[in-house]
Design a protein around this nucleic acid. Structure first.
Lengths: 362, 362
DNA sequence: GTCGGTCTGTACAACGTTGCAAATGCAGCA
DNA sequence: TGCTGCATTTGCAACGTTGTACAGACCGAC
């Protein structure tokens, strides 16, 4: 039923190859021939079969994006940005979801879960360095996010330590001194690798403010519920912070909920800063101050990295060196730290700082 | 670099076809041969090339899911469900985003945006009946959601009118009588087709409660901001509802925000019901009562419909008749209607009703 | 001992496309 | 007129896989 080059060629009275040439805009085709072929194409409604084309070319035009879960709006928003960025290069995006589980991340990193792809953009959560060591380098890989690896793959993330420090700095500037950190629950092996926690500690230490472990708490998972429970546990333990810096916005939203249930006012009693700048944070009863990564830039860099590897190193990609690409971020101040009157209407809150992006060598 | 059947065949000293037979578990292969081939496969690390396989078989193993936007958590959650359902049949999902724009939806419905696919699951927003008329039926199509079409394609949606009536019934049972409807802004041509609005009107009328147009308002788009602005506009117009039924949860969240800004209490002054049961609604300062569609069932039915069309009608699909499949839904009562004390902790609120799903013929 | 049947394995073609090299046609020039 | 050179077009092979048809080996039965 579908129309092939052969059908068009017969109708136009030319060879298959000539039709192919017309379709691919090759030079050296007479305007007359081109017109005749084009007419046949239009008449039959021919469209190239991408599968055959890809078999021939060795490329599929698809890149996989593997994220922990789409239900986390940060990843949904990031996915939209990646779809846009890929679209600009006429690539489509196959979405994969790892659940943040290590074994799924390993499979995704090797392209086992989605074999019809030219490249992989992976946002790992529990993946270990060792998991990447055994990888065959047939398919280009780019890593996103806070976790850092030694493996020779491009890594794209905002400067997490600097971003965390900016958030904590903001809280210090507001006069807060008992600033808690509510983190995500990851495999225990990863804990030392939490850059945002490191930033929290560094900024407090630099300011001469105590950063005791009693102010650090983690929820189960990285969602709203985990944040709420962790915050409740912190309050139950008798600790009474005057500010919270959360690993991400979802956790921060859970924190807001827990504070609300205890009758604590935000920001009067406790100021809260999140991380990710998801849309949800702008529309709660108390809009959320947050670190806003430049998602568009992250997506564009990721896609460019994959396509660059495809275009450049054919086989020689191994050891071609990794790059650390750091897009910019902003600290967006909203009601959860500066209050209603000062922050103004949601969505138009003040932006404190613009931290430019840049690439640091490895 | 990649290993092909040919390489394996050479190493094992058999023909290419025999290797293929082993890979595909064909019968009539001697255990000895099978073992020898398997050994070669393992040694070389052979994995089938899906592109070639798909060229041969005419199937790609990929289905497209086209939604208005992933930033709407309903669609993100639905996408996860579809990925799961497709995965059970060893299919992968290519995510497309239409932005809710009619032209993009037309392209998606025809598979122009993503040609490497076996089927399309489309959740349309502004698509018109006429847009489907000219469609070539090469690729199976399933439609999701509130909008209804005459075209001969399976349509999967909960019973929107019944769901809306259940939501309004709940508000009436609470003694509310001035129940506003806050809708989504669609192409004006579609407005009569809003089933949820029809349900609102029907339930009010059946209860002998007035349903004036002054209680109906629409925001721009279908997001939080549109909901907030629409609600603000409604209040500015002097109308003072004691309850709101919103087209979806995002709009309802915008409504909550607008009410909060005006100092109106929820649910004491105004009770609010949303639609979709997104996770976000469970964790606001006031958790949201909502209609909860069975997303898993929707996803499973959609995938089954596409795969069924692939397996069954080869070319004869046209006119093979459409089905209307209606998965179940529940009304989940939370703080935005029944208050804090009664609703209990977020996420564990009471479920009022379970409305079973079923398929109604066309 | 021959025949028919079953079981294994193979050769070939095809899916629809594109790169390569060769073939055709045409104009210009000696 | 015949040749060269270029623009245009074509045929062939190949990408990696699988369906079909068939060849050979082996078995038991007459």
């Amino acid at each position: 039923m579908p129309v092939s080059l052969k059908d068009v060629a017969e109708r136009a009275g030319v060879s298959i190859k000539t039709v192919s040439n017309v379709v691919n805009d090759h030079p050296h085709v007479t305007p007359a021939t081109r017109a005749r072929v084009q007419q046949a194409i239009d008449a039959l409604g021919y469209r190239p079969n991408p599968t055959a084309r890809h078999l021939r070319r060795g490329r599929t035009g698809i890149i996989a994006l593997a994220v922990p879960e789409l239900a986390n709006p940060y990843f949904a928003e990031l996915a939209e940005a990646v779809i846009d960025a890929a679209g600009e290069h006429e690539y489509t995006v196959l979405l994969d979801r790892t659940g943040g589980r290590r074994e799924q991340e390993v499979l995704a990193s090797q392209g086992f879960r989605t074999r019809v792809i030219d490249g992989i953009i992976l946002s790992p959560f529990e993946l270990q360095d060792a998991d990447l060591a055994g990888r065959s380098d047939e398919v280009p890989l780019v890593l996103l996010g806070e976790r850092e690896y030694d493996a020779p793959y491009d890594h794209i993330a905002i400067d997490n330590v600097a971003a965390a420090r900016a958030a904590v700095r903001h809280l210090l500037d507001l006069g807060r001194t008992r600033i808690a950190y509510v983190g995500a629950d990851t495999d225990s092996a990863n804990r030392p690798a939490e850059l945002r926690l490191a930033g929290w500690r560094a900024e407090l230490t630099a300011a001469g403010v105590p950063a005791p472990d009693s102010l650090v708490v983690r929820g189960k998972g990285w969602g709203r519920e985990g944040g709420a429970r962790a915050m409740a546990r912190l309050l139950d333990s008798g600790v009474r912070p005057d500010a919270v810096f959360a690993f991400n916005d979802l956790i921060a939203i859970g924190v807001l909920r827990a504070l609300h249930e205890r009758g604590l006012r935000v920001p009067e009693d406790v100021a809260v800063v999140g991380f990710d700048d998801i849309a949800e944070g702008r529309f709660g009863a108390v809009s959320l101050t947050t670190v806003s990564p430049d998602k568009g830039a992250i997506a564009r860099l990721a896609v460019a990295s994959v396509l660059g590897a495809l275009a450049g190193g054919s086989g020689e990609s191994k050891g071609s060196g990794r790059r650390d690409l750091a897009p910019g971020f902003r600290l967006v101040e909203r009601e959860s730290t500066v209050g209603r009157g000062e922050a103004g209407r949601p969505g138009v809150a003040g932006v404190r700082d613009q931290f430019g992006g840049g690439a640091g060598g490895s």
